Amino acid sequence: MTGTDGSVPTRSGSSALDDLLDKQAIYEVVMRYCRGIDRLDFDLVRGAYHPDGVDHHTGFDGGVEEFIAWVRPKLALFGGTMHTIGNHLVELHGNRAISESYFAATHWGHPEFGDFTSGSRYVDLMERREGRWAIVERWAVREWTRSDEGRMITPEAAGPRGRRDGTDPLVELQSRLAAR
């Protein structure tokens, strides 16, 4: 919550450092969700929500498990997706928070819809339960969509490519570090 002078007041009984740590934890919930969607890692997606979490997307309203069952086959039809988070603002209200994240989501390689980018916002009600911040209710608010059909080009040279399976460079690096 922002004061009329633009300052960010701390919650009663909390310190500015506590507020920053909470805001960082909430930001990381949003980032893990995006990674999970883009890499088809539905455990990461599931972990961004509390078990009773609700999602409101274009064409969907329901619980987190139903959301995953709905989105998984849709995402599998794309060659890939990439979420880029822009503005991110959190209003803390004790163990609850409002998180607003502006983002662009690029989708490519769908046999029917082709390539497109959407500008949207995640408006999230977050709660801290047993020390863990997660989404209780999310609205994926679509602001605009544009067709990118015919704009994708073949990579200019060989090199690392993103994959949505266990061979992505991130997964390989995580495995390497976990083995040590």
Rank of each mutant, 00 (worst) to 15 (best):
residue 135 I to N: 04
residue 1 M to T: 09
residue 172 E to V: 14
residue 150 G to K: 13
residue 137 E to I: 00
residue 8 V to P: 01
residue 167 T to V: 05
residue 106 T to L: 12
residue 131 G to F: 00
residue 122 Y to R: 00
residue 171 V to P: 14
residue 164 R to L: 11
residue 6 G to S: 11
residue 146 R to M: 09
residue 1 M to K: 10
residue 71 V to L: 13
residue 18 D to M: 09
residue 3 G to N: 15
residue 107 H to L: 08
residue 12 S to G: 04
residue 43 D to F: 00
residue 10 T to C: 10
residue 155 P to M: 13
residue 177 L to G: 05
residue 111 P to K: 08
residue 109 G to A: 06
residue 123 V to C: 09
residue 135 I to R: 04
residue 157 A to Q: 12
residue 149 E to R: 15
residue 16 A to K: 07
residue 49 Y to V: 00
residue 43 D to Y: 01
residue 75 L to P: 07
residue 132 R to N: 07
residue 176 R to I: 08
residue 13 G to A: 02
residue 132 R to W: 01
residue 124 D to F: 03
residue 123 V to H: 04
residue 105 A to Q: 09
residue 156 E to P: 11
residue 110 H to D: 08
residue 41 D to W: 09
residue 105 A to Y: 00
residue 62 G to Q: 02
residue 50 H to P: 07
residue 81 T to K: 08
residue 154 T to Q: 15
residue 87 N to K: 11
residue 109 G to C: 05
residue 37 I to Q: 09
residue 57 H to E: 05
residue 125 L to T: 09
residue 62 G to L: 01
residue 142 R to Y: 03
residue 81 T to H: 11
residue 176 R to G: 12
residue 95 N to G: 07
residue 28 E to D: 11
residue 173 L to T: 14
residue 142 R to F: 01
residue 11 R to I: 06
residue 62 G to F: 01
residue 95 N to E: 14
residue 32 R to G: 05
residue 80 G to R: 12
residue 127 E to W: 06
residue 6 G to E: 09
residue 130 E to W: 00
residue 13 G to F: 02
residue 51 P to R: 04
residue 145 T to D: 07
residue 136 V to A: 13
residue 86 G to C: 13
residue 143 E to I: 08
residue 78 F to Y: 15
residue 52 D to E: 15
residue 29 V to G: 02
residue 6 G to I: 03
residue 37 I to W: 06
residue 71 V to R: 11
residue 112 E to M: 02
residue 162 G to S: 15
residue 157 A to C: 13
residue 104 A to L: 11
residue 123 V to A: 02
residue 142 R to D: 03
residue 130 E to Y: 01
residue 160 P to D: 13
residue 70 W to S: 02
residue 10 T to K: 06
residue 156 E to N: 12
residue 106 T to S: 10
residue 72 R to S: 11
residue 118 S to E: 06
residue 127 E to I: 03
residue 13 G to E: 04
residue 49 Y to E: 04
residue 175 S to G: 14
residue 21 L to T: 07
residue 15 S to V: 03
residue 2 T to W: 12
residue 168 D to Y: 13
residue 56 H to P: 00
residue 32 R to Q: 10
residue 130 E to G: 05
residue 52 D to A: 10
residue 136 V to E: 10
residue 170 L to S: 14
residue 27 Y to I: 00
residue 73 P to M: 03
residue 159 G to P: 14
residue 47 G to P: 08
residue 35 R to S: 03
residue 50 H to I: 05
residue 63 G to V: 01
residue 9 P to Y: 05
residue 12 S to R: 09
residue 40 L to I: 07
residue 1 M to F: 13
residue 16 A to Y: 06
residue 19 D to M: 07
residue 67 F to M: 11
residue 33 Y to I: 00
residue 79 G to F: 05
residue 33 Y to D: 02
residue 13 G to M: 03
residue 89 L to I: 10
